[in-house]
Design a protein around this nucleic acid. Sequence first.
DNA 1: GCCAACGTTGGC
DNA 2: GCCAACGTTGGC
Length: 154
Amino acid sequence: MKHWLMKSEPSAYSVDDLAAQPNKTDHWDGIRNYQARNFMRDDMKIGDLAFFYHSSCAEPGIVGIMEVVRAAYSDDSALDSKSDYFDPKATAENTRWVMVDVRLKRKLKRPISLQELKSHKALTGMPLLQRGARLSIMPVTKKQWDYIIKLSDR
DNA sequence: GCCAACGTTGGC
DNA sequence: GCCAACGTTGGC
């Protein structure tokens, strides 16, 4: 089982939006970056765990824990010319993009801000903390995962 | 709103 | 296949 971090702008879709869904489950669409897509398509499996990360907001940071409940399948929003995620190169045979379904397990007892993540030496290897990091889906090591869970629980 | 960093596009 | 131009991300 793998661990992940998935970014979303709370103004577009927040952890509370996910919490409000039936069964706290929704699809994670709109990924339009090849590296992020390939992580979803090739490596993300049912049962994997992922942090819900709020980006581009007042207090960027990790706010919740999700479980992958459906592996990658076609993201048809790429076909919808009215969607923000429309991709003119997408075809019905090959939309080029995939999404997964996630279920919110729980919000963290307290959010762990980007600032706090940066202050821990044990986490300096996280891709999230590298300069210019723009990946919207990235792997998290078991070590980093456990460390952050521990932080949020104390 | 600024801007650094990075990814993508497309002409050659 | 190079690389300049452009678009996007995301912290500040």
